[in-house]
Write a protein that binds this DNA or RNA. Structure first.
Length: 196
DNA sequence: CGGCTGATGATCT
DNA sequence: GATCATCAGCCGG
């Protein structure tokens, strides 16, 4: 498997959020290879109150303004890292939050990082998947379209139908249907209803 | 399983 | 000082 070429990624944030479903995130940090298939995403647009770039550029969100295909990683709630794939053109300030993965390889490694027995919950949620892949602030700004600690790949594999819903866990911009997920996939986050 | 709560610390006002 | 793009753990049905 090779990294995605940037030209294969849509520039439009919603299109990117949709097309990321079914791609894989590959982590190549100690103690070894681990990877999972993206099953849930959320789009954050540049004119969107919920987007971290909405009020302009700061030290924290700087990498969200990189051109599409880079990592934007931030720390929240004093405990969790969240991983985004940037979208748009350089300077736009938009991206896609990765909310859940279906673990594919390196299950023991994912489980060890999570200090959790192998289960459905290894990568079910943005903070959980970041921990499982070993993602922290040192991944902020990485190019996900080239080999390295973390990159985007494409495994030939069937993809189920994609559902759309409101985004999860927001207090602003709550009314926009910008969450996308593979219908019925048990590795999608949220309640049962939010998986249907 | 669903719903609620407290922990926790960086960031911005 | 308030606000989080969250999570684990606990409790009730």
């Amino acid at each position: 498997m090779f990294p995605m070429r940037r030209a294969e990624l849509p520039t439009d944030t919603v299109e990117l959020a949709l097309s990321l479903i079914g791609l894989v995130l590959v982590s190549e940090v100690e103690p070894g290879l681990s990877l999972g298939r993206i099953v849930e995403t959320e789009a954050y647009l540049s004119d969107d109150e919920a987007c971290h770039a909405y009020r302009g550029r700061t030290r924290r969100n700087a990498s969200l303004f990189l051109e599409r295909g880079h990592a934007y990683v931030y720390f929240t709630y004093g405990s969790s890292y969240c991983l985004n794939v940037t979208a748009g053109i350089e300077g736009q300030g938009t991206g896609v939050l990765i909310r859940a993965l279906e673990p594919l390889e390196g299950l023991e490694i994912l489980a060890a990082r999570r200090r959790l027995a192998r289960s459905l919950d290894l990568c079910r949620g943005p903070g959980r998947l970041a921990m499982a892949l070993g993602v922290d602030l040192s991944f902020d700004g990485l190019d996900l379209c080239s080999e390295g600690k973390l990159w985007l790949g494409n495994l030939p594999r069937a993809r189920g139908s994609v559902g759309t819903s409101l985004r999860i866990g927001l207090s602003k911009g709550v009314d926009r249907p910008l969450r996308f997920y593979e219908r019925g996939n048990p590795f999608v986050s949220g309640t049962r209803k939010q998986r249907e």
